[in-house]
């Protein structure tokens, strides 16, 4: 049960949040020019790797806001919490 520090509400239990999967996946603006494989990659493929993972969460049962976090998928340590639209933070590997 993670403890997430919502940028608007402060630390709250995971139960109040919903995970929106991998972050920093921009929606392509030129999709009509993309081939099927490239579009399929955007829609379906996620890195799902072991290590530091950048992902989107929403405080659904709180303020309703989306934000980004960096989480270790091994230890579940939260390494950073930052606003939507901010660049990925620099993290020591």
């Amino acid at each position: 049960m993670l403890l997430l520090d919502c940028p608007w509400c402060g630390p709250r239990s995971e139960e109040e949040f919903a995970c929106g999967g991998e972050g920093h996946i921009a929606r392509p603006l030129n999709s009509e020019n993309m081939d099927d494989a490239a579009w399929g990659d955007y829609v379906f493929m996620r890195s799902n790797h072991k290590g530091v993972y950048f992902e989107r969460w929403r405080h659904g049962l709180g303020c309703g806001r989306w934000f980004n976090i960096a989480r270790s998928t091994i230890s579940h340590e939260i390494l950073a919490i930052y606003h939507v639209g901010d660049a990925k933070p620099e993290l020591p590997e």
Partner: peptide, 13 residues
């Protein structure tokens, strides 16, 4: 509503 919010907040702010 969640769907609409997610696009408003994250992709088309």
């Amino acid at each position: 509503l969640d769907w609409l919010e997610s696009w408003c907040q994250t992709e088309w702010p």
